[in-house]
Amino acid sequence: MLATGLCFVGVTGVVRYLGTELPAAQSAFLRFAWGVVFLLPTLAPMLRAGFPAGTLALFGWRGVFHTAAVVFWFYAMARIPVAEVTAIGYLNPVLVTVGAALFFGEKLALRRVLAVCVALVGALIVLRPGLREVTSGHLSQLAAATFFAGSYLIAKRLTQTLPASTIVAVLSLSVTVALAPLAWWVWVPVSGAQLGWLALVAAFATGGHYCMTRAFRAAPLAVTQPVTFLQLVWATLLGALVFGEGVDPMVLLGGTIIIGAISYITWREAMLKRAPVTPHDTETV
């Protein structure tokens, strides 16, 4: 998870460095196009094997949600501090929790409701509406968090019938296809250096997802989730040391509150999953 956080901060750092020279849709398209190049060895046999009935529609909807999310994210990343993008992004699992209750009928107990409310308080501390200007970059990152949550909810449904490798590969392909007309609409000339930087973004993102998958396999979410807080630390240091962005204590406080609420939700879910299989004293040998 430490490596995961560093990889994802590397993604945000490179995108922040590229700034607004390329339109958000074009930058996102080039990043995912590089991802397809990296995944080519796995795409051909996967497409030949076909997919279970009903999954193509889910893949299509996930492509729509994820495409909107990455465009909003690239737009926000070029306009607001790295730490604020990271802190607001912590709302993703909170929104997934709410969405799972609304669309999948998962139980939303009082403790989880309270944890969600605490996370929203953390988001308000980060944004501070009425006390400072909430820019288009902030609103864009909120939209990105919402659309990413929708994408992850569909991914959760897909995991019931397909392996994770197939889900990730199809996502890269579908988002690249969906972004192509948007990128063409706003296309501007691209330099070799910009292509290289976006290839590095794709490499960081791929490495981050790989490390995260290994971490989830090695330890329960209740252990790995709190470590994601360090991503906010890395992002704050990156913004301060590389881009000269001020360290905002309120952003750190709000991010800490959000990740604390997420960690509590994750811990409770882990305890509930363990409860039915934990033997009573009389059942142990």
Rank of each mutant, 00 (worst) to 15 (best):
A3P: 04
L6C: 04
F8H: 08
T12W: 02
V14N: 04
G19E: 02
E21I: 02
W34K: 00
G35L: 02
G35P: 01
V37C: 04
L39W: 09
L43Y: 03
P45Y: 11
L47T: 15
R48W: 12
G60Q: 07
W61V: 09
F65C: 14
H66N: 10
V70M: 03
Y75R: 00
M77G: 01
V85F: 01
L91G: 09
P93C: 05
L95N: 10
L102M: 13
A109G: 11
R112Q: 14
L114Q: 12
A115H: 08
I125D: 07
I125K: 06
L127E: 07
L131M: 13
V134R: 05
H138C: 00
F147W: 15
F148D: 01
A149P: 11
L153D: 08
I154P: 06
L162H: 05
P163K: 11
V168Y: 11
A169R: 02
S172P: 00
S172I: 01
S172E: 04
S174V: 15
T176E: 00
T176P: 00
V177H: 02
W184P: 00
W185Q: 12
Q194L: 06
G196K: 10
W197D: 00
L198H: 02
V201Y: 05
A205E: 13
A205Q: 12
T206E: 01
G207C: 15
Y210S: 07
Y210A: 12
F216R: 14
F216Q: 13
P220Y: 09
A222E: 06
V233F: 14
L237V: 14
L237K: 08
L238Y: 07
A240S: 14
G254I: 11
A270T: 12
M271A: 13
K273Q: 15
T278C: 05
T284S: 10
